[in-house]
Structures are given as C-alpha cells and as structure tokens.
Design a binder for these strands. Sequence first.
DNA 1: TTTACACCTGTTTATATAGACAGGTTCCGC
DNA 2: GCGGAACCTGTCTATATAAACAGGTGTAAA
Lengths: 196, 196
Amino acid sequence: MDNSLTQRQLEVLDAIRQAIALTGAPPTRSELARALGVSSANAAETHLRALAKKGAITLLPGAARGIQLAATLTESAGLPVIGRVAAGQPVLATGHIEDWHRIDPSLFHPPPDYLLRVHGTSMQDVGILDGDLLAVHATKVARNGQIVVARIEDEVTVKRYFHSAHHVILKAENPEFQPLTIDLRTQNFALEGLGV
Amino acid sequence: MDNSLTQRQLEVLDAIRQAIALTGAPPTRSELARALGVSSANAAETHLRALAKKGAITLLPGAARGIQLAATLTESAGLPVIGRVAAGQPVLATGHIEDWHRIDPSLFHPPPDYLLRVHGTSMQDVGILDGDLLAVHATKVARNGQIVVARIEDEVTVKRYFHSAHHVILKAENPEFQPLTIDLRTQNFALEGLGV
DNA sequence: TTTACACCTGTTTATATAGACAGGTTCCGC
DNA sequence: GCGGAACCTGTCTATATAAACAGGTGTAAA
C-alpha cells in the first residue's frame, strides 16, 4: 500500500495532534472541519477515511472522537512513577504509583518500564541525586558494572552491580558509602531492573 | 476549598488516565462506569462532578468525552521536533516540524519550547552529538557561558555563548572547531533560544 | 435522631456525533 | 476530451452520549 500522504493530509494529521494537545481528546468531525477551515464536516470525514486507509490513523466505528493516531506517532503513552516500595511487595503494585509522566521511551535504551524515585545520596557521583527519578527497565539479569534496582530481603536499593559465583557486590557511587556484599546462599536477593 | 480526594475518587482518576493511555481519548460516562465496575453511568457522572468540584478535572459541558485532567497532571502535551531550518525562516515555521515527542517539561529548567535536531559534532564534548535532540527554551537573552541556539545571517547553530560590547564569541565544545567571533555592527546576529 | 456525604441503581430526554448519500470544482495524466 | 483523484458543500438519519431526575444504602459527624 502506498502510505505517502498528500500535503493536505499532513495538515489534517497536524490538526488532529493539535486538538489532542489542546483539549486532551481527539476532535469530532465538525471540530476538525473548523480547524481545517472548511465548512462541511463531511470533508473532515473523507480525510479521516483516507488517512485510515493509508494507516496513519485508526478509526473506531461508532465511537465519538474515535480517532487514534498510528502507533509510531503516539506510543509515548506514559510511565508510572514509583515512590517508596513497601516491604515484601512487588515494585509495580498499583499502590506505589505516585504519578504518571509522559516520557518518550525511545530516548532510552533499553526502553524503560517505570520511573523510580530514588531516596538517599548513595549514587550522587553518577548524577542520581536524592529525589531524582530513575528510568528503570524491568529485568532479572544484569552485567557487571551496570546500575541496577535490586531487592535485598525486603528492601529496594539502587547500586552498581558486580557478581561472582556465590556473591553479589553492590557499590555505591559516593565515597561515604561502603560496598555491600551479599551471600546468595544465605540472603534473599533479587534483581528488579536496570537503570537506563 | 478542600482538594483532598477520597480513595474511590483516586481510583476514578486512575481509570480516566488508563482510558486515555489505552484509547487516546478520555472515556464516556458509560465506559468509565464499566471500568469502575459499576452498572450505572450516573455513578460515573457523579464522580466526575465531585472531581470537577475539587479541581482535579475539568468538564466541558455538552462535549462528548469532555473530560480534561487538571493541568498539573497532563500538561506534558508534547513538543515539536525541529529539523534543519531553512535560510531566512523562523525556527518554529510549521514546515520544519519533523515529529512530535512527548516530554515532561518539568524535567528541564527553564521549560523547553521545542526540540532541535543538532547536526555536526561541534558540541560533542558536552554530550551533544550529531543527530541528537536538544531541548530549547526560546528566548532572546542569554548569559555568558550558556549554550545557545543562535542565528548568524541565515544560519542556525548551537554553540557556547560569550558577549562583550560589540562582539559575540561562539565557542564550540570540540577542539577541532575554532571559536567564532561576530561583530554585531557588521553581521546579522540573533539569539533563538537556550539549550536546557 | 438528624444531617450531611459518598456512593450506588435505575429511567428519561435533548443533543452531539458518526456515518451515509448526492453532487460540485479543480487539477492531472492518458 | 476523458477518467480519476483530491477536495469541497450540502442534507439526512440512527445512535452515542451528556445531563437531569427519582430514589436507595451505608457511614460519620452534630
């Protein structure tokens, strides 16, 4: 299928984006027509069908304002901000969600799954200060030297990660903090994610 | 006014956010009721009125899906990405907009107005590489040492800014580039914005 | 007890809106 | 000149939806 859009169709797409940015919701046919400077809502309807046919948008039949921008343009839905994590609970339990931030995941690699509010100054030498938000990619594996979100017993911390056969060493990025050594045979340790 | 929300009202807010993240549009009363697990759309309506009264949302009367989250929760509308700027045209001319990215403006200070795609390696020593996006706060004033987006004659560049009585010096952050000296009396110079 | 409030189930009505049809203009390639 | 594509003006109708009304339950404070 030929996905190239005409000049006018690009203007239509832009008008839809502007409407979403302005009101928080996609426009109706008449709103869109007004934004485009035409007097008939049907002109907008025709444009929408053309755009849907080319895959630039998706139309939800029978729903008011049922216009969705194609995935590549809109996927930056938003990430939850996690505050303090209570002991013994999974990080992503809904109760911990403090807020939502719209971040473009493509700015990071690998893509983050949530934002963790960091408490304490143990990582300040790599620019992670008390109260900062750290973008975290949820994973159970990490390589030596990476910055990880780890759970020791019931506590969640952010540190630089090193492992050997039966031990894990977590180093802070602040000379005031001692490296932490965990014996995997006696202590409960789990990786929650990777700082990105 | 007392703006504290009840537990149930927080759930309602969250359901609205989820609906927006999922479909791109705020929910209707019935959709919201279904999401909340209640059978009457009027229950949703009552919640919306209560939330609107407390300032958490704004209701647009007579508009389908006319629910807007309060400014503090939603203002991250999105910023245009500016590509190459053609000679003699303002930076924000619509023709230059390559894309849109949803960035939370509160991550930067001062708040950025647009994202500029940087070409060339002249600022690589401060982490601005070829093809990177630079968040720009549109302004006409800058202090010595700040990173600015400047226009010399008809060309737009990113450099570190120093000025004296009649001259402006633009320094690159790469030893391979020479500082640029502009005589304000003979050359056309304008500040476009500040890198943030 | 009374009052207020948060929360719910229903029903009804006016209107906002999607979606379809008929027809017109301009431009471009054949 | 012909056909088609992109674009527009109108009008009509079924339905999705906002918005209001009547009434119920439980809880907490006065």
